[in-house]
């Protein structure tokens, strides 16, 4: 008898993160993957899907409630033990670092669960990286805007061209051992305080 791949339920209120995990699992051949983004009526949804493995993000404030649902479900002869392998501290550590947790049905073969959790961990990490990069890109855009504004202020007050304005800015930063963006920011800020928007 060939063993079916376990059915997986992903509980994540972050829809984009849930979908990249779902995509990863599908690519790895998992056909029975369900995503729940909405906590309302969760007990009934879990009962309907009868998952073998539940993947959930650690920041979900409803983890205590979900665990009690799993406990109740043990009462109706559907035992769910928690986490992967009690002895595998390293795996648990990396799961917690990534911000993901998993619950598995008792008796499920360890290596099957491991591959699912590994996938979830790597996708969670990839997602955080992506978010960080986005954040940085957003920050970089902001920085450029501030520097442009500061350059404009200098061009106006000193009557110089853009290249010279930038040089002055850079020199001020180097002299003060500060970042250009910080100097630019304080320049823009003080101009605002003085009522000169530098336009």
């Amino acid at each position: 008898m060939t063993e079916r791949l376990p059915s997986v339920l992903i509980i994540d209120e972050n829809t984009s993160r849930a979908s990249i995990i779902e995509a990863g699992l599908s690519a790895a051949g998992h056909t029975r993957v369900t995503v729940i983004n909405e906590m309302h009526g969760i007990a009934a949804k879990i009962a309907r899907h009868e998952p073998d493995v539940i993947v959930i993000d650690l920041e979900n404030p409803n983890r205590d409630m979900l665990e009690s649902i799993f406990q109740l479900s043990r009462a109706v002869k559907r035992p769910i033990a928690m986490f992967v392998d009690r002895s595998d501290t390293e795996a648990m550590q990396s799961a917690i670092d990534a911000g993901v947790s998993a619950y598995v049905v008792d008796g499920l073969r360890q290596e099957r669960v491991k591959s699912i959790l590994d996938m979830a961990i790597s996708r969670f990490n990839a997602f955080s990286r992506l978010e960080r990069e986005l954040e940085e890109a957003r920050g970089a855009l902001e920085e450029r805007k501030v520097i442009d504004q500061a350059k404009g202020l200098i061009m106006k007050s000193r009557g110089v061209d853009e290249a010279t304005a930038y040089k002055l800015l850079r020199k001020a930063a180097m002299n003060g051992n500060r970042k250009i963006v910080d100097v630019a920011e304080s320049l823009v800020m003080s101009a605002r305080l003085l009522g000169d928007e530098g336009k």
């Binding site: 409803n62 501290t89 648990m92 917690i96």
Partner: peptide
């Protein structure tokens, strides 16, 4: 933390 489950897990793995 947002849940007692998190407190328990992070205490257990040493975070």
């Amino acid at each position: 933390e947002t849940s007692w489950a998190n407190v328990r897990d992070k205490l257990a793995v040493g975070q």
